[in-house]
Design a protein around this nucleic acid. Sequence first.
DNA 1: GACGCAATCACATGAAGATGTGATTTGCTC
DNA 2: GAGCAAATCACATCTTCATGTGATTGCGTC
Lengths: 210, 210
Amino acid sequence: MIEVGIVEDNVKIRNLIQRYLDMQDNMSCKAAMDSVEEMLEHLGEHKAPDVLLMDIQLPGMSGIEGIGLIKKKYPEIEILMLTVYHDSHKIFNSLVAGASGYLLKHTSLPEIKESIENLVEGGAPMSPQIARKVIEHFNKPETEKKPESDLTSREQDIVNGLVDGLSYKMIADRFDISIDTVRAHIRNIYKKLHVNSKAEVIAKSLRGEI
Amino acid sequence: MIEVGIVEDNVKIRNLIQRYLDMQDNMSCKAAMDSVEEMLEHLGEHKAPDVLLMDIQLPGMSGIEGIGLIKKKYPEIEILMLTVYHDSHKIFNSLVAGASGYLLKHTSLPEIKESIENLVEGGAPMSPQIARKVIEHFNKPETEKKPESDLTSREQDIVNGLVDGLSYKMIADRFDISIDTVRAHIRNIYKKLHVNSKAEVIAKSLRGEI
DNA sequence: GACGCAATCACATGAAGATGTGATTTGCTC
DNA sequence: GAGCAAATCACATCTTCATGTGATTGCGTC
């Protein structure tokens, strides 16, 4: 028997989902609250559910803030977002906060039921549009992360040395060139990157700006 | 009509999938190759399919390398991985390379068909286990990224100054303290982090190791 | 109230870095 | 083959950094 909890402020939707899920013979849905605060209070006094359906827009604390708090105190609860928001920022923040799935609100009741089952079996239910956004999160970096300053390969070597925390002397040894050559390269690097200290070069490099 | 291509070296599996998909009245599957090289050759001479099912373990070039090449020349092709591998590294690399979905090979034919439909409709089909791994990719950073060295807040301020590329003098000015105080803090920071240069502190910080 | 710790400041010294002004060699392009 | 960029090296000078030693103040704890 899967224990399901709901945090949703729209009474109609909440009741509808609760009744439907509670009606299933492999699920029980008793805890249905309209705010994170109430749910937290409930959790303090009752056995924790296995799965929590959570809205984002809620009175008081937002669902996303709620995820963090709930996951911190009850890490074993699987949180499934059920919301109208499909902007990358909210999706991303929810997942980072600890949600294990993300459904859009137009999802049908049987699909919600399936998703909950999927979740307890180790899946991560997502509406197709959401899945696509999540995937794009991986694609983007690859194509966008090329501000590509035009450092020569030798200059890039030197930058790598700096990032590794090496001194000029150590860099010179690593590439078997003189320390004055290292200085010369660094001078050129500074000009190209418009900086004037090792520190800035390292920072730029590690931020992916080189 | 959805044009589907297949790159899969196991003849039995390849033929099975091809026949099944080609049998569907909304799909056509003519191009079925057993290597990326062959598929690239085929693509050069024929109209590109809408979706490409791709294995990872292949003779010659790996499927993951293939994704990049194919996506580069034919960015409009949606690539759906169909493989036995479920290790995070392969999943992650596939997605970064440009795959739009990732199915495990035990997926049934009807499910593969549905996934292809889902894909062309803008979804990102994934087996539940895969979805979970992808989601965990977001969770992990949040929970693990706390190596939390115990720098005091003042020390953290100084580190931020260093990361911003400031000199000791500039840091002193920013926080309105003497340069010798900055030196003192930095000495302590070096001790705590077991480093001995600005560069290493900046690198550590930007790598999230502080 | 003794103790530890964070935060502040001081003085000193040797090492590392930043910058200026050169120069030579190699390889590519027009 | 003149012109140019990249890579190499040299010497000089001034600034910044790393490190040692030491001190004062304030805050929380046992």
